[in-house]
Every structure is written in structure tokens, then in C-alpha cells.
């Protein structure tokens, strides 16, 4: 039974990376709660996280907000260490209209974000390296612009996957 489930999951999910799956969406939400629920539901539908994951992420966002004042595209990286993760993944959302998050470094301040990366990752060396690469994308003005301006989800997915799977060049 597990075998069948796995096959199905791999086929239906987005770009598959070595250990992390990347899913993309163009999201239209009224607020961060609505958005996080929409994004978590994508993972729940593919049986990649349990149904409670989204609510754990929302709870954590209240305690430890994740709005990042990156330029030119401010982002947020909501995540939680609670809830069950069956398949590690990142959901990348380009927002149809900006959404207000609280800043990670200044939780009293609001920030309007244009892209959100919902993380469902485990405490695992290889996945954490990919997370670091994702954060490098956010800092690269040209690259994040190119990703943000992708006209469809597949292109967006492809860009992110390519960056995250790049072998180490620095050090």
C-alpha cells in the first residue's frame, strides 16, 4: 500500500528535487492566515504534511514572525517544527496582491511581502543546505526579480529548482 502511495505522490507533486519537492502557485489571498492555509492545503492534498501543519505554522508566525525585508522583493518564510512532515517540501507563492506580515527582526513592524515560501523541512543536513540556497536566492536582486516575474508556475518552479539543486560553488 505504501509503495502505491509513494508512486502516486511522486507523479502528482511538482518538481522533485533530491530530498525536497518544490511546488509553486500564484496565490490570491486576503491575509497571511488565509494564504498559509491555502499553501498548506496544497501539501495536505498531496499527503506531504498532516492536516494540522498549517495551523502550527500560523501559531508560530504569531510568536516568531518570518517577514524578511529583502530588496527588491520582500518575502516571508513561514514554517513550523511541529506537525508531521511526510515529504519535505517548499511551496513558493507569487502573490497576486501583496500581503502584510510582521518582520522577523522587528516583530512590531509590518512589511508588505510579494512572495512567500512555505517551508516544510526536517532537521536534516542536506535539506538545510537547500534552505540556505533558497535564502541566497532572496538576496540576489536580479535572480529574485527573474523568479518573481515568471509568467507561469512551471517557469517559477524551474528557476527555483535549478538554484536549489546547484552544487556548491562557493566556500
Amino acid at each position: 500500500m505504501e509503495l502505491n502511495d509513494n508512486t502516486e505522490r511522486n507523479e502528482s507533486a511538482g518538481c522533485e528535487s533530491k530530498t525536497l519537492q518544490i511546488l509553486c502557485t500564484f496565490a490570491d489571498a486576503d491575509n497571511k492566515y488565509d494564504l498559509i492555509r491555502q499553501m498548506s492545503k496544497m501539501l495536505v492534498d498531496k499527503q506531504m504534511v498532516d492536516e494540522k501543519y498549517g495551523e502550527f505554522v500560523i501559531d508560530r508566525e504569531e510568536d516568531f514572525p518570518t517577514g524578511i525585508p529583502s530588496e527588491p522583493i520582500a518575502v516571508a518564510i513561514p514554517h513550523s517544527e511541529n506537525g508531521s512532515i511526510y515529504q519535505s517540501s517548499i511551496v513558493a507563492a507569487k502573490l497576486i496582491k501583496p500581503i502584510t506580515f510582521k518582520r522577523m527582526d522587528k516583530p512590531d513592524e509590518d512589511i508588505e511581502v510579494k512572495m512567500v515560501f512555505l517551508l516544510a523541512v526536517q532537521r536534516n543536513e542536506e535539506q538545510l543546505k537547500m534552505l540556505v540556497k533558497l535564502m541566497r536566492i532572496v538576496q540576489d536582486h536580479e535572480l529574485i526579480n527573474r523568479i518573481y516575474n515568471s509568467e507561469d508556475c512551471l517557469v517559477l518552479e524551474k528557476h527555483i529548482k535549478a538554484e536549489i539543486e546547484k552544487t556548491e560553488i562557493e566556500e
Partner: peptide
Amino acid sequence: VLMTPTTMKLDAPSVNGVAFISGVGK
């Protein structure tokens, strides 16, 4: 290196680590 702020009194100097994610002020 603080990725999240704290009001706790620290016994050593601290820096704002969020710059390493945003790239701003890095």
C-alpha cells in the same frame, strides 16, 4: 547571532542575523 530578537539580557555582544537572509545590511 540573532535570527529573532530577544529582550533577554545577553552576556556577550549580539548582531542582527536577519541581514543574512534579507541581504540588506549584510
